[in-house]
């Protein structure tokens, strides 16, 4: 088991090295730079700026220096916000994104999994058809439309929930739905289809033939066998939702990380772009590692190093 984790940590390190290298060089091949503006910047000013941020050095040297910093988790200064480091940006913006993401994630699981199970167990019933309809709708509506609709109905018309910020629990409701809406729909459909597949297996007939009550057939025999695809999806999902969403954070005016992702690309804010990409990659790799460990817990056939 320890051996397995060690192996995986090693391969994660390789993955991250590849992410860092590829992102770094790809980023620099894109035309423009952090100080390119609409107005012509005087050449001497540009040179001075580039010298200050070491952008005048050869690319390989910049890369080596960046990696050196990275090894002690120093992500460098932002090129756009004077005197603010990338570490500061993450420290300030991540909590809001992570809190909202965690709430949205729990919301997706608590609603999506039971809805999917119910839909599978009562296959073709009216509630199943309703759940399928809403889930399909949820997958087709983009989050900015959903967010705007939610604000219009629940904030503007019904005045139940506030429109922006993250101060009380009420503030979390609408952005969580907007952020998790797509995943909720996806998880519901995934749980439904994999439950249905499990329910069609021979061992379900065996369980029924030995007199196992239906409740136990569903929740013991079928559910555990249907969890693999669900876990596969929701592992990476958590990494995605805690790093924030540009759209949802924009609509609900939440001071999260989402907007830095997008802004850093348009502004060629190299260090911010690198830092956030690496953070995302680390979270994703960690999530995948946890998923791999969960596989073993769920299904003895993929248990490692027994």
């Amino acid at each position: 088991m320890a051996r397995f984790i060690l192996d995986r940590v090693f391969s994660i390190a390789l993955t991250l090295a590849a992410v860092v290298t590829l992102t770094f060089f790809m980023m620099h091949t894109v035309p423009g730079g952090p100080f390119a503006q609409d107005k012509e910047v005087p050449p001497e000013v540009l040179r001075a700026l580039e010298a200050k941020y070491h952008l005048d050095e050869p690319l390989y040297l910049q890369y080596v220096n960046y990696v050196k910093g990275l090894l002690v988790w120093d992500l460098g200064p932002s090129f756009q916000k004077i005197g603010v480091s990338v570490n500061d940006i993450i420290k300030q913006s991540m909590p809001a994104s992570a809190k909202l993401g965690a709430v949205a994630f729990v919301f997706v699981l608590l609603v999506g999994i039971p809805a999917g199970i119910y839909s599978a167990v009562r296959r073709d019933s009216l509630p199943d058809q309703a759940i399928r309809f809403v889930a399909t709708l949820g997958q087709t509506i983009p989050s900015f439309v959903l967010a705007t609709l939610l604000i219009y109905v629940f904030s503007s018309k019904l005045k139940i929930f506030p429109t922006f910020g993250l101060r009380t629990w009420k503030h979390f409701v609408l952005p969580s739905i907007a952020l998790g809406g797509y995943s909720l729909s996806f998880v519901t459909r995934l749980v439904r289809s994999s439950m249905l597949e499990a329910l069609g297996q021979d061992y379900i007939m065996t369980a029924r033939a030995k007199g196992v009550p239906e409740f136990q057939v569903f929740f013991k025999h079928a559910l555990r066998n249907s969890l693999i695809p669900v876990v596969t999806y929701i592992g990476p999902l958590i990494a995605t939702v805690v790093t924030g969403s540009f759209v949802v954070e924009k609509v609900f005016a939440i001071p999260g990380m989402g907007k830095f992702f997008v802004d850093s690309i348009t502004n060629r804010d190299y260090t911010v772009l690198m830092g956030l990409t690496i953070l995302d990659a680390i979270l994703l790799c960690a999530a995948v590692l946890i998923v791999d460990l969960l596989y073993g817990l769920i299904d003895p056939r993929i248990r490692v190093g027994k």
Binding site: Y203, M205, T206, R301
Partner: peptide
């Protein structure tokens, strides 16, 4: 009939 699939694998 099929003992390979009639027992719950988990």
């Amino acid at each position: 009939q099929d003992p390979m699939t009639s027992l719950n694998p988990v």
